[in-house]
Amino acid sequence: MAGAAGGRGCRMIRGAQIRDVLDAAHNVLFDCDGVIWNGEAAVAGAPEVVRLLKRRGKRVFFVTNNCTRPRENYVQKFSRLGFTDVAEEEIFSSAYCSAAYLRDVAKVQGKVFVIGCPGVLKELQDAGVPVAEQGDEGPDVSVYNLPLDPDVKAVLVGYDERFTFMKLATACGYLRDAECLFLATDPDPWHPLRGGRITPGSGSLTAALETASSRKATVIGKPSRFMFECISSQFDLDPARSLMVGDRLETDVLFGANCGLATMLTLTGVSTLEDAHELQQSESPEKKDCVPDYVVESIADFLQALEE
């Protein structure tokens, strides 16, 4: 596909140029937050873009590191924001993919201790992966007598607004066993909130546990290849005919580069064109992998190309 094989050019494209890129793609993968929507508002034109891509015969997938809700709740959000034809099987979240990894790849024979939110727990439940009880954090429990379940064979870290020191200590206790798997839903360090504020992301909590345990987590979400492999195992995607559209250079764009996809940055989310140009000027090959092939102001720019 154009742009995927050569150097990543960071080209700002419009109109007929966008049409050429879309004509070459059979599969279009979108990040959600900052690309499809911001909070509870769809990005202008996004529902129409998804509808028109499907009408053109494109296969559309949604690949998100946001692990806060299960896939069935994502379907509800898509519907609420005006997307009328998004199916659950087209949505691949880091929570869903983490559950799939534990069940199908790691084939964990035991329980999983989870630092995470209800979205992660629901996906694990739906996948039939047993989860360890959090344990009692009452006044008589301390780091000296934390109960540890001998059946725990893996620790999974995701976004957790109820993160505590005792959860961290419990996870450390399990990871003292070198055979205990250590997984993270995603590496996102923070997420933007309304009013210019941010919230710590899964990557921040994972970093705390990595420091405390002297171990490195296996990351399931973007930029790991596993999310693409998870989609490809179900839909037989050809990387050479696939386009990744995202708003974050170090996750979305790097994910596309890692998987051999053409990449497009949209400027409705986290990363800016200046960020991309700065990486493009870097001497580091790793940073250059975060440079997109193409840049658009918004996926609303697709509309002209799709409607012609």
Rank of each mutant, 00 (worst) to 15 (best):
residue 172 C to M: 13
residue 177 D to T: 00
residue 164 T to N: 12
residue 158 G to D: 02
residue 208 A to K: 04
residue 158 G to N: 02
residue 167 K to N: 09
residue 131 V to F: 07
residue 245 V to Y: 01
residue 177 D to M: 02
residue 133 E to D: 15
residue 175 L to N: 03
residue 157 V to K: 03
residue 206 T to R: 12
residue 220 I to T: 05
residue 174 Y to R: 02
residue 241 R to E: 15
residue 247 D to L: 06
residue 193 L to M: 14
residue 214 S to E: 14
residue 257 A to N: 13
residue 250 E to W: 12
residue 174 Y to M: 01
residue 209 L to H: 09
residue 144 Y to A: 14
residue 176 R to C: 04
residue 165 F to P: 00
residue 142 S to D: 10
residue 193 L to A: 07
residue 241 R to N: 05
residue 208 A to T: 03
residue 226 F to H: 14
residue 198 I to L: 07
residue 209 L to W: 07
residue 199 T to Q: 11
residue 235 F to N: 08
residue 168 L to G: 11
residue 152 V to D: 06
residue 139 P to S: 13
residue 243 L to T: 06
residue 162 R to L: 13
residue 163 F to C: 04
residue 199 T to V: 14
residue 207 A to P: 02
residue 247 D to F: 06
residue 156 L to Y: 02
residue 139 P to Q: 11
residue 250 E to V: 07
residue 164 T to G: 11
residue 167 K to S: 07
residue 214 S to K: 14
residue 133 E to H: 12
residue 188 D to P: 09
residue 147 P to A: 10
residue 142 S to I: 00
residue 224 S to D: 15
residue 179 E to V: 00
residue 217 A to V: 03
residue 219 V to C: 07
residue 203 G to A: 03
residue 261 L to R: 07
residue 157 V to M: 03
residue 254 L to H: 06
residue 203 G to P: 04
residue 142 S to G: 12
residue 260 G to C: 07
residue 199 T to G: 00
residue 189 P to D: 10
residue 220 I to N: 03
residue 210 E to R: 08
residue 144 Y to V: 02
residue 223 P to K: 05
residue 188 D to Y: 09
residue 170 T to L: 06
residue 168 L to A: 14
residue 231 I to T: 02
